[in-house]
Design a protein around this nucleic acid. Sequence first.
DNA 1: TTGTAAGCGTTATCAC
DNA 2: GTGATAACGCTTACAA
Lengths: 379, 379
Amino acid sequence: MAASSDGQDRPRATRRKRSAPGTVTIKEIAELSGVSSATVTRALQGHPRVRPETRARVQQAADKLGYRPNDIARTLATGASKTIGLLLPSIGDRYWGEVVAGIEDGADEAGFSVLLATSHGDTSRSRRMLDVLLSKRVDGVLVASRRDVEEALAQAPLPVPLVRIGPDAEFHQADVDAAGTLAPADLADWLQRRGLAHPPHGVTAFDDVDAATIAVEHLAQLGHRRLAFVGAGTRRSAALRVVGFRERAGRIGSESATVVTSPDSLEESDRASRALLEGPARPTAVVAYDDMVAIGVIRAAHAIGLRVPEELSVVGIDDIDVAAFLEPPLTTVRQPKRELGRRATDALLTVLRGGAMPAGQALRGELILRGSTAPVRGV
Amino acid sequence: MAASSDGQDRPRATRRKRSAPGTVTIKEIAELSGVSSATVTRALQGHPRVRPETRARVQQAADKLGYRPNDIARTLATGASKTIGLLLPSIGDRYWGEVVAGIEDGADEAGFSVLLATSHGDTSRSRRMLDVLLSKRVDGVLVASRRDVEEALAQAPLPVPLVRIGPDAEFHQADVDAAGTLAPADLADWLQRRGLAHPPHGVTAFDDVDAATIAVEHLAQLGHRRLAFVGAGTRRSAALRVVGFRERAGRIGSESATVVTSPDSLEESDRASRALLEGPARPTAVVAYDDMVAIGVIRAAHAIGLRVPEELSVVGIDDIDVAAFLEPPLTTVRQPKRELGRRATDALLTVLRGGAMPAGQALRGELILRGSTAPVRGV
DNA sequence: TTGTAAGCGTTATCAC
DNA sequence: GTGATAACGCTTACAA
């Protein structure tokens, strides 16, 4: 691996200054090809007013010397780094990983690089990472709209364009509570007032409300009328899904129930799910907060001898990669995570190219029919 | 977002040059605090020889102006970008996502940023992305050791330190074939000769051979003697796991079988698994290439009425997040993905700090006991 | 302890 | 078409 083996023939006395060892600059190309460095730049950039033969000579010299442009210098000179900063709560989980894949795609196609930063759910860290990104002169920033990041953002506006990914930034705990207590009839109105029906300007989000609606609709079509939503938590996405669930469940004339469980705590979830399924008004179908919760629900059902989907239909939201491999394979509302990243990136790039910030976009989920749902049985 | 609102008191005639709108530089701090720009740098860097009061004055001016250092300029001046480049086949999958989390951790702690690039399994793209990273003057590079990347690397050595993540770079198809045909007795020796027992210099890898060994050992302790490995593919990791499996299975005096399936094709896998389980010498236990394959095997077993773990024990390798939620919960050999990223990063940082490249490291898997394995039944 | 000035590698504005 | 040359914002000898 040719470990840094220098100290061989470097001129005695102090070398002029620090500088990378074998770096080829346009100056050297200029010498070799007998033109000025200005011409080298023009030639290499495909500037129209350079004689073809000059261009060829320069190109040749560059190739011969193995020239690799110094983007740092270029950035300093032009002010554009062709890099976008990305601030996420974390990178390890499946969700953001997929989103990042979409971001990478979009950035790459446009010739942009992606500089990564994570907030770990901490406001001051968010602020710090934002500063790092800005110090590295990213041209624009993509952020996961979480509370920590939003708080950091609120402290000082960014000097570069920004696009948020995720649910509405204004959605806080008060809303979660409200969503849980409102009468179904008031929900649609409430959504409108809170501006949650569609994400605002500069935001790309998964349409959580709609996703739950899709799930309910599917179950309604199968004849289900006793529904439950499992997995309502304090997350904004959870609250929004509850909203969609209650709204649509109400419309199909269903008595619906909402049960709070934590997808992170298996025991918790199991207990709550069992209580629901063994309770007096056992639902015939369940919409789960996400696929992990759905897995928990199915597990709980099996534990008390309930067959899925024969005796209980379960719909997840997400479509994680194992969903198709489960027993039964999970019916779910696919979340277009990759697309989410892609759209957000495209929006940002539009602005970077001088365009206007596209209006906020809400991406719809897609129902993936598999084996965990079935027509309701005559009860 | 305070759209570029200047044009107030800028000197008439053309402003000197392009430059970001509200950018504060050390020069302005210098003016405001009545010192030279050199002193500003020194003060801000915590240089020892600056009078405390001067430092304070400078710091104050900087704060007042909302100074944010320009890392691009700094990089150009110093030659160090405090950024490491990361080249992966993809970022969307769970595996690399976790690894990246470890990388981010390590880099962040050391004050480094991470610049992302993906190869999509394409050699020329790898080369290009490597060039992009180098143009952006990353101080070092971390790469997933896959064939495309290795080929790109072989074309020209990198001018910066590099650490590989993943299986041995020299392990090619010929080896895969060899591993599949060798007599168990020769395997250990073969491993040694190929230098696969431990990853070489500058490489951090999961010990695939060992992982399979761990799985076999666990099954052996439960009394199993008729074992099979399912999921051997052309991937290097698969070949290595087969090697470990056969070697250890041979030692415990087991008749072992190896069956090839593709974890990507559900139907394929199902068919192959069923053929194995319905065949004449049905194994009492299976080591799966990874957790996804394990899920497929369990599924196939259920499909033909075989209970897991009562009639068939199954061990996975990986420990994906749903492993604990499956029915039965999956016993598996956990792959320390995050740790992998962390170690590779630490190795790279050691070199960047002037240290010697640490020897290659192989990270051991850890057996996670859950419900898919049980003592062999009197057959 | 502080100031002066020469870079770092490119780009871009002028002239010619 | 091409060549000087002044930025870009920061660091760092070398002087003072």
